[in-house]
Write a protein that binds this DNA or RNA. Structure first.
Lengths: 109, 109
DNA sequence: CCGTATCCTTGCCGATACTG
DNA sequence: CAGTATCGGCAAGGATACGG
């Protein structure tokens, strides 16, 4: 995006706002990092790693990440149920941006 | 940040969350881009460029950006008043990250 | 011209309880 | 085990009016 697009187009249409909508929120990035680190993770494992997240929030956020194509959900039809989450290629391509944000934040805070 | 810090520390303390808190919000990035493009800009100029932003929101966000050290505010004590905003060095150092987010969003949306 | 004050709506997120 | 349902609190952001 360059500035001319701010003048002419709606902000909602910029690439920045789109990217921001995918990663902003209290837990999204932590979940992405969790999946990056452990590759394939079950629902309750994620919940344990994040510690403070509620069922409702984790459930909601995972569905958003899945809908946004960043996370893959694999369900095994068995009892008790088993569901595994992992990053898609699209999700992995976002990691360098998350890293640069971490780095900037640690240097400049 | 690496994953071990997710396990051991609070999310609130990560560099990512800090960076995110500086740039998330509906208009922050647009203001930063506006300042990047035009260098020194008056209050009402910013308001015109952003079009849909309200007085209250612009005022609030500018104060946050100033408090976070990303934006410099120069006030000229005259009537009618004149105030100019510009990026600090710290603010400029954030631009590459904003750019990469724009780029990713445009490629992947 | 450059804001503040007030009121209001909306959406995120947590707590808790329940289900296949 | 892996969720959904319901309720409620809190903060961001918009509309409008007023002030130095």
């Amino acid at each position: 995006m360059n500035f001319s697009s701010i003048e002419e187009a709606d902000l909602e249409q910029s690439g920045f706002s789109y990217t921001l909508s995918l990663i902003s929120g209290k837990y999204k990035m932590a979940i992405l990092y969790c999946l990056m680190e452990y590759k394939v993770v079950r629902y309750n494992e994620i919940k344990r790693y994040l510690k403070t997240i509620s069922h409702k929030t984790l459930s909601t956020v995972l569905k958003q990440l899945e809908a946004d194509g960043l996370v893959h959900r694999e369900e095994y039809p068995q009892i008790p149920p088993k569901v595994e989450y992992s990053l898609t290629e699209r999700g992995k391509s976002l990691i360098p941006i998350l890293d640069s944000m971490c780095l900037w934040g640690e240097k400049n805070r």
